[in-house]
Simulated assay, not measured.
Amino acid sequence: MAGPARYEELARQLSAFGAVKRELGRILPADCPSGSAAVLTLLDRHGDMRMSKLAELLAVDVSVTSRHVAHLAEQTLIERSPDPADKRSRILRLTPAGRARLDELSERTTQLLAHRLGDWTDDELGQLTRLMARLRASFDDCRAEQSTRTPAITT
Rank of each mutant, 00 (worst) to 15 (best):
E124T: 09
D83H: 00
M132G: 15
S66N: 14
T95C: 02
Q127S: 15
T65C: 05
L113K: 01
T110I: 11
R136M: 06
T109L: 08
L77Q: 03
L128H: 11
L135C: 10
T109D: 05
T110H: 09
A133Y: 10
R80E: 06
T110S: 14
Q127G: 11
D103I: 05
T76W: 13
H68F: 06
K87Q: 09
A97N: 09
G118W: 00
R99S: 05
V64E: 12
G126K: 14
E74H: 13
D119P: 07
Q111A: 05
L77F: 08
I91H: 01
R90I: 00
A133D: 11
R136P: 15
G126R: 15
R99T: 08
V60L: 05
P84V: 01
S63I: 13
D86H: 03
L112V: 01
P84S: 04
V64M: 08
L92H: 01
Q75L: 04
S66R: 14
L112E: 01
R134I: 03
L92C: 07
Q127W: 11
E124S: 14
E74T: 11
L131A: 14
H68R: 12
R99H: 05
L105N: 08
L102F: 03
L77V: 09
R90M: 02
E104F: 06
A97D: 10
S81R: 06
A70S: 12
L125A: 13
V60I: 10
A114I: 09
L117A: 12
G126E: 13
V60F: 02
L94C: 06
L135E: 14
Q75I: 10
A85L: 02
Q127K: 13
L105Y: 04
S63P: 14
V64D: 07
A97C: 12
L117R: 05
S81D: 08
Q111P: 03
G98N: 02
Q111K: 10
R67H: 08
Q75C: 04
L102E: 05
L117I: 08
L125P: 03
L135S: 13
I78D: 02
T65Q: 04
S89M: 11
D83M: 00
T109S: 12
H115I: 00
T109W: 00
E104Q: 10
A114D: 13
S89G: 12
R99A: 08
I78Y: 04
L113T: 02
V62K: 04
T121C: 11
E79K: 08
Q111V: 03
R90Y: 00
R88P: 14
L77C: 03
G118K: 02
E79Y: 05
E79H: 06
L105I: 09
A114T: 11
H68Y: 11
D86N: 06
H115N: 04
M132S: 13
H68T: 09
V62Y: 01
H71M: 10
R134H: 14
L125Y: 07
L72T: 05
L112D: 01
K87A: 03
A100F: 15
Q111W: 00
D122V: 10
D103T: 09
H68G: 05
T110Y: 03
T110N: 12
D86Q: 07
V64I: 08
L102D: 06
D123N: 15
R90N: 03
Q111H: 05
E104I: 10
G98M: 07
H71Y: 09
G126P: 05
D123H: 15
L128N: 09
A85D: 03
T121Q: 14
R108N: 09
A85Y: 00
A85S: 07
W120T: 13
